[in-house]
């Protein structure tokens, strides 16, 4: 599903250059649930943003679902993001003047799905995250956990090949975090490929594979016995 080879990325700041990713080799099969760990500043978000085509790599190759991701213009990148990828952010990034269901429907709007179908699909995904009753509420009327579930529903609505989550539980308390992880596990159970960046060991243990980043390289990559989040909920 995902294949990266010898990936390099540095940030240029004036005359200085900060080499963040220094040769990453890494692949993900369909249906995997991967945790990316590492200390702060180790380049986890940078990696995820490149995978998400929000940022460009400097060197190396990236193949997503057998499509080489290279030299994309912004329009093409937008279309690929829309078609292949779902994003979940630490700070939810819901649009504050849109109701829950309108937020979920937004990627479908950019897919040019008709209004009625959009509404139906969005409601279906809201129901899957258990928030059907909250469909018409604005984000400001939802709790953090609820917001993140809306964000997950939004990421899933476009039926992406890969779900990318950057610290999805970073802003949540542990109970709510487990609820969100429970949801992510269920989505993964349904066959979706998911990458989760996290700081927290317990969250990482709820994935099926843990990749450790340190100083811009992968220092550890191991399969783990998945801990089910449902037991804590």
């Amino acid at each position: 599903m995902i294949e990266i080879k010898d990936l390099h990325k540095s940030y240029k700041m004036g005359s200085n250059s900060l080499h963040v990713l220094k040769g990453i080799n890494f692949s993900v099969e369909e249906g995997e649930l991967v945790a990316i760990m590492g200390s702060s500043g180790s380049g986890k978000s940078t990696l995820l943003n490149i995978l998400g085509m929000l940022d460009e790599l400097d060197e190396g190759s990236y193949t997503l679902d057998n499509v080489a991701i290279k030299n994309l213009n912004e329009t093409k990148a937008a279309q690929y993001r829309n078609k292949f990828l779902g994003f979940v952010f630490q700070s939810f990034n819901l649009i504050n003047y849109k109701s829950a269901v309108e937020n979920v429907a937004l990627p479908l709007y950019y897919q040019r799905v008709g209004r009625k179908e959009r509404q139906e699909k969005a409601l279906k995904y809201l129901e899957q995250v258990g928030l059907k009753e909250w469909a018409t509420h604005l984000p400001s009327e939802l709790s953090g956990g609820q917001k993140q579930r809306v964000a997950i529903a939004r990421a899933m609505a476009a039926e992406p090949k890969v779900l990318l989550a950057d610290e999805p539980t970073g802003a949540l308390d542990s109970t709510t975090s487990y609820e969100v992880m429970d949801l992510i596990q269920k989505i993964n159970d349904a066959g979706n490929t998911i990458l989760v960046v996290t700081h927290e060991e317990d969250i990482a243990q709820m994935c099926k594979r843990i990749v450790h980043l340190k100083d811009g390289v992968i220092v550890e990559d191991k399969k783990v016995e998945q801990v089910r989040a449902s037991q804590y909920v």
């Binding site: 998400g52 937008a78 993001r81 829309n82 649009i95 504050n96 937004l106 950019y110 476009a158």
Partner: peptide, 16 residues
Amino acid sequence: TKELGVRRALGATPTE
């Protein structure tokens, strides 16, 4: 800016 960034992450093209 942020909202427009979110929209673009969700697939809005620059033209849109």
